[in-house]
Write a protein that binds this DNA or RNA. Structure first.
Lengths: 115, 115
DNA sequence: TCTTGACCTGGAGCGCGCTCCAGGTCCGAG
DNA sequence: CTCGGACCTGGAGCGCGCTCCAGGTCAAGA
């Protein structure tokens, strides 16, 4: 299986080396396999997961939220627990969208006022 | 004209006293009129403006963005400049909504997987 | 008048999410 | 074998957005 060096993984994901190491320390990704010499080797799967994490970070989830997310999906939890957690997170995102829409409406009002 | 004490303004807006003072220092609101003794008196107009600021904060705009927003709306700028600024801000909010939607789609996928 | 509590200011402190740095290790090219 | 660049670790530093604190002032009620 082909693997990526840290630099290549950073390049592919758009996440800095420091941040990749930080995410790993925080348990958001990995643990990443190492070579005999101790260097990290990222798999395609790791890259995919980093993409998910990035997506959620961009959506405004905190590091703690993501840690919990990872824990829920990995550890032994019943489907009910997982679904409950996921729905709750989804609700929070919906509220963020609502807040954004309110702000956009205000902007639209100002824009049409000045247009 | 009826005015509000700091405590009443905090209560009405849901913003803490410290944060109200902080926003004023940062130029996001006010300057707030003072009594002879130096205490702040918030007008209804101030309260309304605090509501706007809160709305934008909840939408994820930073303090710097809001300072710029206030400056653009107050200072002498042509309608074109204002509209350009407002549209740019609106675009940024749309991108945030898009990021949220991407994250929600992932959640929906997981939810249907576990349901 | 005295007390009490809301308010004032300037500045320190804090949690988050990175980001940077020092000092050392690994390893491929020459 | 040597050199240099990519990588390692642990820990310090930073910008943001508050939040808290000390030490003092103001003003309404007893």
């Amino acid at each position: 299986m082909t693997t990526l060096t840290p630099a290549a993984a950073a390049d592919r994901t758009g996440v800095s080396l420091d941040t990749l190491r930080y995410y790993e320390r925080e348990g958001l990704i990995g643990p990443i396999r190492r070579t005999a010499g101790g260097r990290r080797e990222y798999t395609e799967n790791d890259v995919f997961w980093i993409g998910l994490v990035t997506c959620f970070r961009e959506a405004g989830l905190g590091i703690g939220d993501l840690r919990e997310f990872v824990a829920i999906l990995r550890a032994e939890h019943s489907p009910q627990e997982r679904v409950a957690f996921l729905r709750e997170r989804r609700g929070a995102l919906e509220q963020r969208v609502a807040a954004l829409c309110r702000a956009m409406e205000i902007l639209d009002g100002k824009i049409s006022y000045y247009s």
